[in-house]
Nucleic acid binder design. Structure first.
Lengths: 335, 335
DNA sequence: TAGTCGATTGTATACGTATTCATCCCTCGC
DNA sequence: GCGAGGGATGAATACGTATACAATCGACTA
């Protein structure tokens, strides 16, 4: 194993110029069929693969997309990542993955300008982060996936979190619940904000008050849902239904309910958000608002490719519906 | 936003040659402190970042590591990926992630030769895959992580699956179990094979027979564990303990047990393998053999970097211990 | 005072590919 | 028989950086 062969080496071997080899590689029609066949044979014999770096340098395209994400271990994010990988590789694109959690924002800034990728997918935009601003400023085509920023002049594909949350709220109200718990996240992103506000709106529209004591703001981990459930269910008048803004928290709530001896759904209904694969597991059997991961990713990557083609097209914001998946955590009766 | 500035542009701006700018960028000591300061100021004003492609082409190093993985949505794999991302980025390295599941092996072969990365981390080696062979043949430094191939002349860092499985078996035997179930995977990798054989060895050493009817070979998903548990627990003489080779299957088993009304651990003990974060969730409270993810990743990446430095050093195989994490799914009493 | 050395800096080149431009040869039409 | 034209190919160059080599300058030694 010395130095890998270059197109120039093979040109010599095939008795043609490097330019001709390159023409063969790029399927340039201006090459004699016989010559093409001969060159292809030599390429094959040498087991040659073009140097992707040199090619990228010349063409300005790397066929690589940069993906920014947080908390890969969270079930929803893992599913999102998996889907992104599937779609990208089906298009012959590579994926560079950055976990923003691990790195300070300044170090990410450098990455944005390195021209390593043809485009960015941001999946974890938050209102106070500068990542999306920096990405746009870098001039590299960028699409916001799953989490959006209202009014930002940038392609965005998100679930309609507000509508999904509203439907969840209405579902509880119509089932007769009046003592309702809300386990929510700080509104640092459009997802957590809309999943909160949409739910409250449904209750307000139905004239159901939500008591301040029944609202708990937590962090993202499972343990936080667990703690919140114990706190809610130990109230003098515990809620008969708890809605929360992620499946992960809902799992924690189910566990917390179990810990204090509350039965689901007999004593308390639970609704999550994301409809991850795990929600269907018997241990949880969780009613959850579904995120159309497949469509979000497919649409988002399509948008990104079109923007790479034509950087000047106007930005589109696409909002996809989030239907409610009903399971045993809210009784089996449907509304 | 036109073309991003190049080192040549900035050289002109700073009144020096492109070479001097380059020297400043690479911290070459042979540059006058005053000049350096002036150039740095210009770089900063222009918000300049070197073109990573051109740099990589010249130096032959991309500061990027290629990671091959399967089933990112599986809890253990997600944790592994997260840890890999953490360690790589702490070293200033990027990660290109390929999900082998999505792509035919031939298309992966191309990727291996593109010289896009400085090294490969393979986390899903199987006996019948040619991926590791191709990776080695590509001449790019390669390390096998988590899953190894016995006798392969390649750096490998794996958990001691056999020992972990053996300890789990002995633990059950010493607790007095004699009717033991084994939910296992086809031995296509060293992990599934050793987690099976080690367990059987412990039982054999203790003189406990495992009935053929108590052994079920399944696929990887949660649902398969679920089905296996139902099958085992409906036998005339159901096992009083079930061991399986991944946490994901164990979760399925716990759910399956619930489905047929078997109580854990009163009616049946359950042991998994991986000790994922979820194993500690109250819904599962699963006793599980721990994989030392942190050490595996840290050690593996260290090995990879050393091999990149010196490609001719002899290959090392490192096997790390897998301790048993005891939880409620096997009663609270310790041995 | 001439020569030498070290510290800086500039000039030129290479990395491997894609592509423009020039060249060559063959065919066709008159 | 000769010029035009087109198809196929080679030579040359550029992408943006890092670096070997050459050049310049000042200081210092013999």
């Amino acid at each position: 194993m010395t130095r890998p062969p270059t197109s120039r080496d093979l040109a010599r071997l095939a008795g043609v110029s490097q330019a001709t080899v390159s023409r063969v590689l790029t399927n340039n029609p201006k090459v004699n069929p016989d010559t093409r066949a001969r060159v292809l044979q030599v390429l094959k014999d040498a087991n040659y693969t073009p140097n992707a770096l040199a090619r990228a340098m010349k063409t300005g395209r790397t066929d690589t997309i940069g993906v920014f994400m947080t908390r890969v271990t969270s079930p929803f994010h893992a599913e999102l990542l998996d889907e992104i990988g599937r779609v990208l590789s089906s298009m012959g694109l590579h994926m560079i993955l950055w976990n923003i959690e691990h790195d300070p924002e300044e170090s990410v800034a450098e990455v944005l300008q390195q021209r390593l990728v043809d485009g960015f997918l941001l999946t974890s935009a938050t209102f106070d982060s500068k990542l999306h601003t920096m990405a746009l400023a870098s001039g590299t085509p960028t699409v916001l996936l799953h989490r959006g920023i209202d009014g930002l002049d940038c392609d965005q594909v998100v679930g309609d979190n507000w509508q999904g949350a509203y439907d969840a709220g209405r579902y509880l109200v119509e089932a007769g619940h009046t003592e309702i718990g809300l386990v929510t996240l700080a509104p640092t992103s459009n997802t957590s904000r809309d999943r909160d506000l949409g739910f409250r709106a449904a209750l307000a529209d139905a004239g159901v008050q939500i008591k301040p004591g029944n609202v708990i703001t937590v962090g993202v981990p499972h343990a936080d849902g667990h703690a919140a459930a114990r706190k809610l269910l130990r109230r003098k008048k515990p809620p008969t239904a708890i809605y929360t803004v992620t499946d992960l928290l809902a799992f924690g709530i189910l566990d917390g309910a179990r810990a204090v001896g509350a039965r689901v759904p007999d004593d308390v209904w639970v609704i999550g958000f994301d409809n991850t694969e795990m929600a269907a597991w018997e241990a949880f059997d969780l009613t959850s608002v579904e995120q159309p991961i497949h469509s979000i990713v497919e649409t988002g990557i399509d948008l990104l490719r079109r923007r790479i083609e034509d950087p000047d097209r106007p930005a589109a914001t696409i909002k996809l519906p989030c239907p409610l998946a009903i399971r045993g955590s809210t009784a089996n009766r449907r509304i």
